[in-house]
Computed example of a mutant assay.
Amino acid sequence: MTGKLTTHVLDTSIGQPAEGLRIELWKFNGITGDYEKLREERTNSDGRLDEPLLDEEMMDTGRYELLFHVAAYFHEMGVEQDEPPFLNVVPVSFGISNKHKHFHVPLLIAPGGYSTYRGS
């Protein structure tokens, strides 16, 4: 199996993939104690990215964080939100224990909540 990191975002409020949602990938640096931004992407019409966030060459074991910009997505979709919105940026902090495995981090979103899990 080839190691990679992927994600998928579904908007459960409309029962469709979340197209155009901005996602940032950060990696924890154990030496400095800070997170370092690795990349930033937007989801395609299927709520996925056109390529993995990390492939086996770029993957390393350690702590990572995905930031999903859900308030901006719902604003762009014309969804009325409180000010400030209940959810702004949804962080999902996770670990990669084996760079040769596939780590899939799906996110289900709605204006009032979200859910995530380790996918396959």
Score class of each variant (00 low, 15 high):
residue 21 L to A: 10
residue 25 L to P: 04
residue 113 G to C: 05
residue 25 L to G: 09
residue 88 N to Y: 00
residue 76 E to I: 01
residue 108 L to E: 08
residue 70 V to E: 02
residue 77 M to Q: 15
residue 13 S to C: 08
residue 108 L to K: 08
residue 83 E to L: 05
residue 70 V to S: 07
residue 1 M to N: 14
residue 53 L to T: 08
residue 102 H to D: 03
residue 30 G to T: 11
residue 119 G to Q: 06
residue 97 S to H: 08
residue 8 H to W: 14
residue 106 P to S: 06
residue 3 G to A: 14
residue 22 R to P: 04
residue 50 D to Q: 11
residue 57 E to P: 01
residue 92 V to E: 04
residue 48 R to L: 14
residue 45 S to C: 06
residue 51 E to G: 12
residue 12 T to M: 13
residue 104 H to R: 03
residue 62 G to S: 11
residue 115 S to I: 09
residue 103 F to E: 05
residue 33 G to P: 10
residue 119 G to D: 15
residue 90 V to L: 07
residue 18 A to I: 10
residue 114 Y to R: 03
residue 85 P to Q: 03
residue 111 P to F: 02
residue 87 L to S: 02
residue 117 Y to Q: 13
residue 90 V to I: 15
residue 98 N to E: 11
residue 96 I to H: 02
residue 75 H to Q: 14
residue 29 N to F: 03
residue 50 D to R: 07
residue 6 T to C: 13
residue 82 D to Y: 03
residue 119 G to F: 04
residue 32 T to Q: 06
residue 71 A to T: 03
residue 107 L to V: 06
residue 7 T to N: 15
residue 48 R to V: 09
residue 119 G to S: 14
residue 104 H to I: 00
residue 38 L to D: 03
residue 22 R to M: 11
residue 70 V to L: 01
residue 16 Q to W: 04
residue 4 K to E: 15
residue 58 M to L: 14
residue 73 Y to F: 12
residue 34 D to P: 00
residue 117 Y to L: 14
residue 120 S to M: 08
residue 93 S to V: 12
residue 54 L to D: 09
residue 89 V to F: 00
residue 112 G to M: 08
residue 77 M to C: 14
residue 49 L to P: 07
residue 103 F to C: 01
residue 107 L to F: 01
residue 99 K to I: 04
residue 94 F to Q: 10
residue 117 Y to W: 15
residue 81 Q to R: 04
residue 82 D to G: 11
residue 20 G to Y: 05
residue 27 K to D: 01
residue 38 L to E: 05
residue 63 R to W: 00
residue 104 H to G: 01
residue 63 R to G: 00
residue 44 N to I: 12
residue 80 E to R: 06
residue 52 P to N: 09
residue 38 L to P: 04
residue 37 K to Y: 02
residue 120 S to V: 09
residue 85 P to V: 03
residue 39 R to W: 00
residue 72 A to W: 03
residue 89 V to E: 08
residue 52 P to R: 09
residue 31 I to T: 13
residue 21 L to D: 08
residue 18 A to E: 10
residue 5 L to R: 12
residue 77 M to E: 15
residue 111 P to W: 01
residue 95 G to R: 05
